[in-house]
Design a protein around this nucleic acid. Sequence first.
DNA 1: CTATGATGGAAAC
DNA 2: TTTCCCTCATAGC
Length: 266
Amino acid sequence: MPEGHSIRHFANVHDDCFQGLTVKASSPQGRFDEGAEAIDGKTFVGTSTHGKHLFFHFAEHDHIVHIHLGLYGWFSVRKNRGGKPKQSARLRLENASFISELVGPTKCNYITTQELQTACAKLGPDPLHDDVDPQAMFDKIQSSKKSIASLLMNQSVVAGIGNVYRAELLFLEKLDPFMPGREVPSESLTNIWNNASVLMTDGATDGMIRTVAPQHLTEAEASDHKYNQYSYVYKRHTLPCRICGTTVLIGEVDGRKLYWCKKCQS
DNA sequence: CTATGATGGAAAC
DNA sequence: TTTCCCTCATAGC
């Protein structure tokens, strides 16, 4: 499921498959309220992203498609071998070589260039963007009484981090999730930002989240090619911490599950 | 078969 | 703070 790395990954895949080419567009599910007709037969110019927001740009139109996958939205992009459209697809793009089907998004609608800028202006800096100054994120955190766990999930503070990366980034920095933002040292914030950039860039390339260093995986886990499912603390509650053996804890912050090791993160 | 939850967020109370 | 939405894999009868 989608955090910022997935959005960048899907953007890359769509650029690879459709950039510069005309596409057939449709909405098999029929809930693309504004209709796919406006982009049907148009040239797919390319993608852009900010955090968990994905934008498809088309030629000749001020019809940018704004996509947010929400909790369980997903793309299926594959070679075009014919076959029938998936009926739950909100948006289907097709050219001679590829098919893209978007299922279950929270948002999929047209916006203008101006609306794109407005949407992005509400978001904090994105660790996946090149040459971005994270100072705005640091300032918001260090002027807040809210916990660092809460702040890292706030998209207006930093864009693209979700529940998995939050838990793992806090663990990697050995930071108490409940520490008020104003008490978090600048060095920790720099490390979190840098770790986020590296891990999410790798995640975008692979299309999966990997946070555990190879030496911290068991032999069986390391030989499992689906080792993206392994974490330091995310969903590891009741299991021993990979580093200290203490039982990983589970809690809730802002209605979302939080996982952490009380001994390592204090 | 139905119930539940999930890497999200907006809108309604 | 709670509710609701979009989908689907998995758990549990």
